[in-house]
Design a protein around this nucleic acid. Sequence first.
DNA 1: TTGTTATTGATAATGATTCTCTTTTAATAG
DNA 2: CTATTAAAAGAGAATCATTATCAATAACAA
Lengths: 158, 158
Amino acid sequence: MNTRPSTTQQRIDQMVAKLKAHDCRITPQRLAILRILAAGEDHPSVEMVHERVKHEFPTTSIATVYKTVHLLKQINEVVEIAFPDWSNRYDGGKPFPHPHVICIRCRKITDPKLGFLKNMTAQVAAETGFDIVEYRLDFFGICADCKEKEGPTKEELT
Amino acid sequence: MNTRPSTTQQRIDQMVAKLKAHDCRITPQRLAILRILAAGEDHPSVEMVHERVKHEFPTTSIATVYKTVHLLKQINEVVEIAFPDWSNRYDGGKPFPHPHVICIRCRKITDPKLGFLKNMTAQVAAETGFDIVEYRLDFFGICADCKEKEGPTKEELT
DNA sequence: TTGTTATTGATAATGATTCTCTTTTAATAG
DNA sequence: CTATTAAAAGAGAATCATTATCAATAACAA
Ligand SMILES: [Mn+2]
Ligand SMILES: [Mn+2]
Ligand SMILES: [Zn+2]
Ligand SMILES: [Zn+2]
């Protein structure tokens, strides 16, 4: 039933280890935040993480969530999917650049399985003379659930 | 010398036509903003556009630039490259989704020529069940100029 | 030329994120 | 187990690019 892949626990352990390596303390709040992020899959916002953490620790400040997420970003243990129009979203399950598919209706964010990204950055580096350190690839559209709910859409460019 | 490809004038004309089709008025300020955006290549921010427009019309408000850029975005005559950390940038030369290469030192933004994006969105649509309406692909790195200025860099993740 | 109405320009408001500062607490050693 | 100390939590103010507001101005059709 509730069988999570053991990789989630492994990810938590990795994150804790990395934090300790950086002389950071493992507080109960941090551990809770970290567990939520490590689960991945749902790409929550800071506010969403805050809501969930409060179930365990009701006095948790949203500032603490912001600070923890920022810290994890610094040490490359979480990927930030930042948006100018709405809240940033986070993926602690795959802490390296990877593409995302984003529903512009319900804002669901998922990780597609794609095979054509092999040597994308190498090709760009050769073409432009840049040293590429990371990339960001987002596809925007309407998810299957939203399509079903309101029929086919014609134009809906953001 | 100053031979611009005639496509810039064509782009200006396209933008003007589209604005008229939407019952928008062509003011001198708008035309100036539009000329700057149509030139493309440099991907300016609103503030940069404002600075340049003021050479022609010194009383121009930055609000006018924001409003014009927003309008052009609505009618799909400019591509917005939005950032959470710094000012958004705009490309009026190629008003359709295309990849960008961004220097994290000097913030130069260029259009790479890439050939592997053929049926990228189709593949994602098939894989995820989404109707993909647009995408965003950014490569972040150090440009050739910046590399030269300060020697090779090891880690510089944002 | 006139009338209508979109646009301008100046300024206030917004809102997610960051900053500041005091209190609390994790981690370590004795 | 307790004391020590620096990191972290929590609360609230500050930031800043962008948006909203509104009176004054001007584009454009008649
Ligand atoms: Mn992801
Ligand atoms: Mn471009
Ligand atoms: Zn959806
Ligand atoms: Zn550079």
